[in-house]
Amino acid sequence: MRTVRDVHARTVQAPADTVGALLDRLGGADDPLFPTPVWPPMRFDRPLGVGADGGHGFVRYRVAAYEPGRRIRFDFTGGEDGWHEITVRPLGPGSCRVEHVLQSRLPLGQRVMWTLAIRAAHGTVVEEIFDNIERAATGRASAPVRRSPRVRLLNRLLWDRPRAVELPAAARLAHRAFPRTDFQDAWQMDLLPGMPKEPEAWEGVLRGASFPVAGRADGEILLGKDARHLDFRASILVADGRVTLGTVVRLHHTTGRLYFAVVRRVHPFMARLMLRRIHRRLALAAPTAGERAVARV
């Protein structure tokens, strides 16, 4: 195994105490630094401190050292040998240097993955953290990082996927759409910090198809259309930190049943695709963590 070492640093035109106070909120409910919702949020099983277990996405680590306002060191867990840490060092009364260092011993296979993909994504996430430090501390990022085509592709490939669930009881419009329902399903994804919680923002989930709004109530929008062979409704429910795309169908006579026998084979794929696509699109368009921190002031 060989050791991989990666260092990023930036001078921030803000006092070290100001930047350190932002660092102390890393991984919290109002985290102003980690670049969500474009990347999975950093989460821990307890408040930030030595021993807190967590990570972001598939990267898992534990807080090994914590000097409030100055330094946090994370040891990788899950069999990976290494650590990463972020430090804040004063340069003067109005500026400081923020540095992130990663060091890890990787076997050949992981080293190849690091070289081909992970290093670029890791570097982008770190630079976006630095951008958010500048935004939250000074009001603007001096030179925001740009995501390379490789990083955008990796982000797309690693994006979370919808999971099948029962149609939530809170989707009352969908449950009451028809006196008799011949088919129903639902797909759900978690809302990431900064993503819109208004169901109107999610109306574009049925991209490429324009259907009238059949109802709105309590965080739910119902779209749909009636036809001679079947009636269908699509429910978009935003509640409890999740967005759910539900479908209910009522069939008419033999033609409708034959038609839907074919459609229902491709419907799950299309429903997952549409929900995942708008989920990522809205995440990319959402304000950054630093911008949200400034807006809260």
Results as ranks from 00 to 15, higher is better:
L245A: 00
H84D: 12
D131L: 08
T255A: 15
M1C: 13
P162A: 06
H279T: 05
G28R: 04
A214V: 11
V243G: 06
V126K: 01
M113G: 00
R62K: 12
G94W: 15
G55E: 07
R62W: 12
T181E: 09
V59I: 11
T254I: 14
P15Y: 10
S142F: 02
T11P: 04
H8W: 12
P193E: 02
A174L: 11
N132Q: 04
T138N: 04
A293C: 06
V98P: 02
L223C: 08
V59T: 09
A64V: 13
N155M: 08
A9Y: 07
F130T: 10
F44E: 08
D53G: 09
A177E: 12
L116N: 00
V101K: 02
E220M: 07
R10A: 15
I72T: 13
T288L: 03
P287T: 10
F34P: 02
S148E: 01
H229Q: 11
L245R: 03
L222M: 07
P168A: 08
V263P: 02
R180M: 12
V38R: 09
Y259M: 04
R70Y: 09
M195G: 06
R233L: 11
G109K: 14
L157D: 00
L245M: 03
T36C: 12
G78R: 12
F34K: 02
P179T: 14
A289H: 01
V248P: 08
W159F: 13
M274Q: 13
D231P: 01
A177W: 02
A52F: 02
A234P: 05
Q184P: 04
V4R: 06
V19D: 06
G139H: 06
R46C: 10
R152C: 08
S95P: 04
T3W: 13
S148M: 00
S148V: 00
L157V: 03
A169F: 14
L154F: 05
G219R: 05
V38F: 03
Q103C: 12
A261V: 04
L223S: 02
R207N: 15
L108E: 03
P196D: 03
V63T: 07
R2I: 02
L91Y: 08
A209D: 08
F183H: 09
V243S: 03
R233P: 11
A52Y: 06
G219L: 10
L222S: 05
L191W: 12
L157K: 00
I278N: 01
R70C: 14
A261G: 14
L26N: 07
A201L: 11
R280A: 15
P40W: 07
D17G: 04
D17T: 14
C96G: 00
P196Y: 06
A141N: 04
V165P: 01
I133V: 12
L230C: 11
L230K: 03
P47C: 04
R176N: 14
G109V: 11
V4C: 01
N132A: 04
Q184L: 13
A209C: 10
G69C: 06
R152H: 01
H267G: 03
D81K: 13
R5I: 15
G28S: 13
A117M: 00
E99N: 09
L116F: 00
R156E: 11
P41D: 10
P199Q: 10
E200A: 15
V165R: 06
